[in-house]
Simulated assay, not measured.
Amino acid sequence: MSKVDAIQAAPPPPLSHWQSTWRYLFAIVTGAGFWITSYYNTYAGQIGALWAIDLLLGVVSVVLMRRRRTNPFLVAMIVNIFGSFSTAASGAVVVTTVSLATRRRWREIVPVAVVGFAASVVFFETHPGAEDSLLFSLLFTVVFVSAVIAPGMYVGARRDLLSTLRERADRAEREQGLRVEQAQVTERARIAREMHDALAHRLSLVALHAGALEYCRNLSDAEVAEAAATTRKSAHLALQDLHAILGVLRTLETDAPPERPQPTLADLPALVQEAIGSGTKVRLHNRVDNLAEPPEAIGRGAYRMIQESLTNARKHAPDTAVDVTLSGHRGGQLVLEVRNPLRLGSAVSLTPGSGLGLLGLTERAELIGGCLEHLKVDGHFVVRAWLPWPA
């Protein structure tokens, strides 16, 4: 099988009324012209049985043209055979052979071309009045068959090219839709992580101080006011975070930036002070000269990891000291560790959680090319992360 045969040819497009009409007009006018000419040249001006059969075969050939798109090979073969006896079938021979050639299948084109070649030679050698030499008949037949098949091959190639271009355009459009959908999914996952990291931290402060107001009956008025103020502030900040996240969800552009800047590692001291102000004992051991130096993605990831670790410590081991250690340098790694003692015998935290915080931190670290581990060591719960810090 040839390379052209191996290619799935594009199906012929439907013909308009005019496109179908002019093909029939061409076959009829061409066949009638040759048939009338043959009356004077071939049949010597005598109306006889052969001339009538010539016309009859031409009419049948034109009728068979209606099936040329559903059975192109069979119709082209029959019409070419009729062409060996009928000048009136000449127009139908051209139309059916061109139609077959548009399929660009040599296993169909070659047999029809051979039959057409033989039919032309038979016509010139057997019809009365045909006095041309055999060499002229052969040359004319070769030129005629080639002139009929070549345009059909060109039309078929152009049709296949247009079909391929349309298919590529449709595939590109589908792939673009998939890329947009994937971008939306990625953005939603990022927003979900931001919601968990930011809102869980704020709302845990609200729950902590609300619980203190509920169970501690001997608080002074100043302590009650301070706890209520901290609760109000945390709730206000949670609403701000929620507003920012909903603003991102309202935007249609997946690459649109958040409405307000996201925290980075440079905001870590403020996070620690906020935690201390809410009653959590936090000690920051910073061995990085400039907290604003790490790339934004690395700094933001480290900030969220520390924030979530402080939230977990506040929920599961309140009233314990939390040590946050940060080290690293450009061209190496940014290493962070959050360590807090395990509180043995304490009640289960009443603050609700998703149970996916540590899983989300691990995924966040992997997304930026780092790794994270959490384990219990010597009575402490430890979260460690190693994040790449490009030079």
Rank of each mutant, 00 (worst) to 15 (best):
P14I: 03
A198G: 00
A198S: 05
N41E: 15
E293G: 02
S309A: 05
T21S: 09
R232H: 11
E175D: 04
V143Y: 08
E131G: 06
R364T: 15
L334V: 09
D5Q: 09
Q333F: 13
K3A: 14
R343A: 11
G33D: 04
P12C: 05
Q262V: 07
G33T: 08
V288I: 01
S38L: 11
H380L: 11
A9G: 05
N218P: 02
V59G: 03
R104N: 01
P261L: 03
N290V: 12
V29H: 02
T37F: 14
L213Y: 07
W389C: 00
L336W: 14
G247E: 07
V60Q: 04
S90V: 10
F124G: 10
W389F: 01
V122L: 09
Q184L: 15
D267Q: 11
P151H: 00
V79H: 02
A49V: 14
G45Q: 08
D378L: 13
I368P: 01
P261W: 02
P261N: 02
L375Q: 13
A130G: 07
W389R: 07
L268D: 02
T251G: 15
V94S: 05
R384S: 08
A347D: 12
F144R: 13
V288G: 00
E366M: 10
R217W: 14
P11M: 09
G299H: 05
E337A: 15
A172W: 06
R23Q: 12
H243D: 15
T311W: 07
T37I: 14
A192M: 04
T186Y: 03
N218L: 08
I28P: 00
A347L: 14
Y40M: 09
G156N: 04
A227G: 08
L219F: 14
T230H: 11
V95C: 05
L239G: 09
A321Y: 10
D221G: 14
G31Q: 03
G48W: 06
I245Q: 05
V110G: 02
N41L: 15
V338F: 10
F117R: 01
L208V: 15
V348G: 06
V322T: 08
V60I: 10
R188F: 12
I276W: 10
L219R: 12
F144V: 11
A302R: 06
A147G: 06
E187T: 15
T311Q: 10
G332Y: 09
L239Y: 14
Q307T: 04
T70W: 06
T87Y: 12
T164R: 15
P263Y: 04
R69A: 11
A88P: 04
I7P: 00
L208D: 13
T87D: 07
W106R: 01
V95S: 06
L135A: 13
R314M: 15
R202K: 12
A172V: 11
L165E: 12
R67Q: 08
S278T: 14
D132L: 15
D197C: 05
G370A: 05
R260Q: 08
L344S: 09
L358R: 13
P128V: 15
D197I: 09
N80Q: 13
D132P: 08
A147V: 13
T37N: 14
A147T: 09
T280H: 07
A119S: 06
L203H: 04
H329T: 12
R202D: 14
E187L: 14
A27H: 02
P258K: 03
G357S: 08
I191Q: 03
L326D: 05
G369M: 03
A228P: 07
P261Y: 02
G277Q: 05
G58Q: 02
